[in-house]
Design a protein around this nucleic acid. Structure first.
Lengths: 198, 198
DNA sequence: ACTGTAACGGAACAGGGTTCCGATTGTCGA
DNA sequence: TCGACAATCGGAACCCTGTTCCGTTACAGT
């Protein structure tokens, strides 16, 4: 009766160099993503991290694994922001403010939205992981708005996030506020009553 | 004073094989785009057309040249559709119907919207050529709607087309009508009066 | 027919993703 | 402390694709 605080017999301890390397890769990827976007060559990340490419693939078999790992914190923060805003503002306004947070997230990750919708097998799990974190929070805002009658109720959170992330990626260097304007138009369309005739 | 129906002295006649090949490439590309999307390898197009890759590059130095050439007819038709609808329906309704036409155009061209916004130098002229054909027609619809007070006047045709083409590309196999639904939401947001508070 | 040249084809080069395997090096038991 | 084992490493090698380049081919005009 010594170590039963581990779920089952400890299979083995993770090697120290493995931990070091996996963290070094994470740091290198983070920097590389900022400089060159998420499509940066694997070899460059490997060089920055001072490891071989094989080591990257060992720790992150899919490029999407690396991306999610790098952006995990920010992604969670963006999700948490949804809760914060939902608690402080009426649904429609919370949604509008949150959409700006999402736009900031996407805009600062060159190539992220493209990867999200690319269909490339290396990015295959990305959409579900991304949406898995955000959609529940957004859905709650949508439901609240639908319940009080200020937001139309036939739009799913996942579709909305898809759309917003698409729009946010439309202008590589968006100095004219195009993204913000079109996102606002989309959100106006969500407000009740929908004026459009069938 | 024989042949002055040509702008200036006819420099030379285009070689028959050149004409043949350039058309063969066009046909091959059209088929390949349908089967595999606009990102299909050049070698495959060359093989289908029975020419060498060098021949493709001779006739279409940029991939975007080939894409535009292949879709020229459909693109013009989509532009003409804007005129037709504008003549027959009130601006807001015309715009809604036209957006469906655009969605059809984009949806049937796998990878097209991605190429449109990719930033890849091989696609560099694509956005301006694409928008150059469509934007003037759409702008006229927007202006008409703004003039009669049914459509908000602060949205440029180019931004709208960008947004719609982005949305139309969001779902590779859109069986659930997601694209149509989100496009409708966007268009609802265009209608006056905009309900959203700043 | 003959010639000059436009056009051709595909080898060659460059660059990126992914795999594979011999070499290395922690970890753990003795 | 030491040895053995296996996890891990590194980067060469392979494949696929875009693009260029140039020796060869074959059309157009005389």
């Amino acid at each position: 009766m010594s170590a039963i605080d581990e779920p089952l017999a400890t299979p083995r301890r993770r090697r120290a160099d493995a931990v070091r390397n996996s963290e070094a890769v994470l740091e290198a990827a983070k920097a590389a993503f900022v400089e060159s976007g998420v499509d940066v060559p694997m070899r460059e990340i490997a060089a920055r991290a001072g490891v071989g490419v094989g080591t990257i693939y060992r720790h992150y078999p899919l490029r999407s694994d690396l991306i999610i790992a790098v952006f995990r914190h920010e992604l969670d923060a963006t999700a948490a922001e949804a809760d914060r805003l939902a608690a402080e503002y009426p649904p429609a306004e919370a949604l509008r403010l949150w959409s700006q947070a999402l736009a900031r997230f996407v805009a600062t990750k060159r190539g992220f939205a493209g990867a999200l919708h690319s269909g490339d097998p290396a990015y295959q799990p990305l959409p579900s992981q991304f949406l898995g974190v955000l959609a529940p929070k957004v859905q709650r805002m949508l439901d609240a708005g639908a319940h009080e009658g200020t937001i139309r109720g036939d739009i799913r959170a996942e579709d909305l996030i898809h759309a917003l992330s698409r729009l946010a990626d439309s202008y590589p260097a968006d100095s004219g506020g195009h993204t913000a304007r079109m996102s606002d138009v989309l959100l106006d369309g969500l407000l009740m009553p929908p004026t459009g005739q069938a």
